[in-house]
Design a protein around this nucleic acid. Structure first.
Length: 723
RNA sequence: GCGCUCUUAGCUCAGCUGGUUAGAGCGUCCGCCUCACACGCGGAAGGUCAGGGGUUCGAGUCCCUUAGAGCGCACCA
């Protein structure tokens, strides 16, 4: 028995050394497993693509959980002899990364992006992204993740960029990507559009004002945003509302707070007669609902009164005022004119931008969209339907199942996806414009995909929503659009494991993109984990200061302990709580195994592994078979939380507490046959326990197994799973 | 407003398609430095499975309902 077993288990000394050895062996790469004879060349494949962490800094415990679950499954599959591929990568995360760098720039140098210019800012971001990448990679390795680093990808590298341009062009050619002038979610703080999914609604106190445009105007309207009323073109009422029936179709002129307006009364079923006065002032350019209603009544959308900086663009007393200031001015004016009838306190859900917190200003803009309701050529289905179908049919299985309902609900309410962003970091939209042709005549030409030949082409200034490139992740990481062997062997991938908070952002987009591009599903199973919360059940956040850094935790207790603490009892879709005490408990578990090793290796020295087992020992071996079957089934069905708990229980309370204890008198006794049998039993049971536990706590099991007489492979990592 | 989930021991949670005396970890209490381990060992207490109703031979597990908590989507101008 090596001397190291005489002192308690030291995870810090062991883990980094072992990871380096694994990495050096090349066995994270399935090709290498085949080459070195651990995996059969024609073995079935199993693949997972790592959800790429954003290069916005460092990993949090949620990432650690993701790595723990995925690595557990991957190690299990590898031990079962499958050609197992787990691809690492990082996400440029466009707006998220740019806003972190911009904040830093503001804080440290009091500069804005415009001070640096596009190239200058990009350089800064790339430097930041590179640093983040290195930190993240180090953290990932610390967790013990057996990722094939030779295949590492980045959402913004050359291969992935090519995939983005290619898909963009294909969707454009299919008529599914279009450029349109529509109301978008404008973030005045971030100075960019955002998609519907990037909006966070916050409940705030607001005032509902009831007033008339002028003394002569027959109907009072109610609004929380009086400043927008200078952009009104109509008042809508419900067609059955007897109060207003006589006015429908009539038109009025007024001067509202110095701004001349022309109002038509229209009837529309969407109006709720019970809210406010039952009459709505329509501001088509500054409200999505109003825009649609204006469309139905052939009203103009062109009256824009607020600009990108949320400032008023009208003349008069409101000129150049911030929207919030303009509100007060309008209210003051209404009061002095005697037009204000009522002012009520109400609660309102206000739309804010997820990344910047800016209050969304709906504005009409020319942007790029993905049409989700148009038929995909040759599929005779819309993208929406293509997203729904594989989940409906069960071709894609979501764990836990109830998220399928949430998924359907989301898709049913889905609108066209705005994919252009007015930020600089990301995939530049692969569209080029030329206003005049080669003969100098106005042409309005557009080229999409790769940069066109010829003079005078100007590329679109905007970049793509980051989820556009992440949507391609399962196949872009496998080398698409090249027809690679990897793509053939490993796609569709087997498992997509991620947080339930990005079911829509990402999972849905991957299904959309893959169905469109390859006509297949991107993955067979979706495993959604919950949030990792602190001991009190609070979200971990910077402001609360309750963040746990995976590096600190692993340094203190070991990656094995951290992994086990994150996995045991953590059912999919449910939030979990983590505390240092919990992790400490599993550090003790690693040490327990260490001590079992000491006992077994000490007492089973010189064991004859061929010695026959006594009936009692046979029975214990059979009991272990049952455990093997149960654990195998649990992992196959992605109940890793259950498998981990059973193994913990078996190792500690069965093997150590009962079997080791009852072995003591046997070894102290005189019956050599029983002793010989017991030696074999202990070695066999412990060997199996180590194999079964390896996917969960890879380091300590590997370290012990290297000293086991049953060692039959270079690493436990590629040893055979018991059956 | 629409939808989803949760409510099981002091705490955090399991309990798969309904089936023997409802489990784990932590905590608590009692006793132990017993030659693998005090990062430990042995033992104990502790639950009318939120309330009510129903289906069933049988329900923590299925259905209805009430109450509380959390989450998602939509959104009222």
């Amino acid at each position: 028995m090596p001397d190291k077993f005489l002192s308690p288990y030291d995870s810090t000394a062991t883990e980094s050394r072992i990871y380096a050895e694994w990495e050096k062996s090349g066995l994270f790469n399935p090709d290498e497993c085949v080459k070195q004879g651990f995996t059969k060349e024609d073995a079935a494949t199993y693949s997972i693509v790592l959800p790429p962490p954003n290069v916005t800094g460092r990993l949090h415990m949620g990432h650690a959980l993701m790595l723990a679950i995925e690595d557990t499954v991957v190690r299990y599959k590898r031990m079962r002899g499958l050609r197992t591929l787990w691809i690492p990568g990082t996400d440029h995360a466009a707006i998220a990364t740019q806003s972190v760098v911009e904040k830093q720039l503001k804080k440290e140098e009091d500069k804005s992006r415009h001070d640096l210019g596009r190239a200058g800012l990009l350089e800064r971001i790339e430097q930041f992204a590179a640093e983040s990448h290195d930190t993240i990679t180090k953290q990932v390795k610390t967790m013990g993740a057996s990722l094939d680093w030779s295949r590492e990808a980045f959402t913004l590298d050359e291969t992935r960029s090519r995939a983005v341009r290619t898909v963009f062009k294909q969707m454009y050619d299919a008529g599914l990507i279009y450029r349109g002038h529509r109301i978008v979610n404008w973030d005045p703080k971030g100075q960019t559009t955002i998609s519907d999914d990037e909006i966070v609604y916050e409940e705030r106190a607001a005032k509902l004002y009831t007033f008339k445009y002028s003394k002569d105007f027959p109907i009072a309207i109610a609004t929380t945003r009086p400043e927008t009323k200078v952009g009104d073109v109509a008042v809508a009422v419900h067609p059955d509302d007897v109060r207003y029936k006589e006015f429908v179709g009539k038109e009025y002129d007024a001067v509202f707070c110095d701004v001349p307006i022309h109002i038509k009364i229209v009837a529309d079923k969407e109006v709720d007669p019970a809210f406010g006065t039952g009459a709505v002032g329509l501001t088509p350019a500054h409200s999505k609902v109003d825009w649609d209603m204006a469309d139905r009544h052939s009203l103009s959308h062109d009256t824009v009164v607020i600009n990108e900086y949320a400032k008023m663009t009208v003349a008069g007393r409101l000129a150049d005022k911030k929207a919030t200031e303009a509100r007060d001015i309008v209210v003051q004016w209404l009061t002095s004119e005697g037009l204000l009838e009522k002012e009520e306190d109400i609660k309102q859900n206000i739309a804010t931008a997820e990344r910047t917190g800016g209050i969304i200003e709906p504005l009409p803009k020319l942007q790029w969209f993905v049409d989700v309701n148009k038929e995909v050529p040759e599929r005779s289905k819309t993208l929406k339907e293509l997203m729904l179908e594989p989940v409906r049919s069960g071709e894609i299985k979501i764990i836990p199942e109830h998220f399928e309902k949430t998924y359907f609900h989301w898709i049913e309410n889905l609108r066209d996806w705005c994919i252009s962003r007015q930020i600089w970091y990301g995939h530049r939209i692969p569209a080029w414009y030329r206003s005049t042709d080669t003969h100098g005549k106005p042409s309005g030409e557009i080229a999409v995909g790769e940069a066109p030949e010829g003079e005078g082409w100007v590329q679109d200034e905007d970049t793509l929503d980051t989820w556009f490139s992440s949507g391609l992740w399962t196949f872009s990481t496998l080398g698409w659009p090249e027809k690679t062997r990897e793509l053939q062997d490993y796609h569709p991938t087997d498992l997509l494991e991620t947080g339930h908070d990005i079911l829509f952002f990402w999972v849905a987009r991957m299904i959309l993109m893959t169905e469109f591009t390859l006509g297949t599903i991107p993955f067979k199973t979706v495993y959604l984990h919950g949030l990792v919360r602190d001991a009190q059940g609070r979200k971990m956040s910077k402001s609360l200061g309750n963040n746990m850094d995976p590096l600190d935790i692993t340094a203190k207790f070991g990656a094995d302990a951290a992994r086990m603490a994150l996995i045991v009892g953590n059912t999919p879709g449910t939030d979990t709580r983590i505390s240092e005490d919990k992790v400490k408990g599993y550090k003790h578990f690693a040490n327990k195994l260490w001590n079992i090793a000491r006992f077994v290796l000490d007492n089973a020295q010189g064991a004859n592994l061929q010695a026959p087992l006594t009936p009692a020992d046979t029975e214990l071996l059979t009991a272990c078979d049952t455990l093997v079957q149960e654990v195998t089934k649990d992992i196959e069905e992605y109940r890793v939380y259950m498998a981990a708990e059973k193994l913990y229980h078996y190792a500690w309370h069965e093997l150590a507490d009962k079997i080791l204890e009852e072995s003591k008198p046997i070894f102290a006794g005189a019956d050599e046959e029983v002793k010989a049998s017991r030696k074999v039993l202990l070695v066999t049971l412990f060997d199996r326990t180590l194999r079964l536990l390896h996917p969960f706590i890879p380091f300590v099991t590997e370290e012990i197994w290297q000293s086991m007489p049953t060692k039959d492979a270079q690493f436990l990592m590629v040893a055979k799973w018991p059956s």
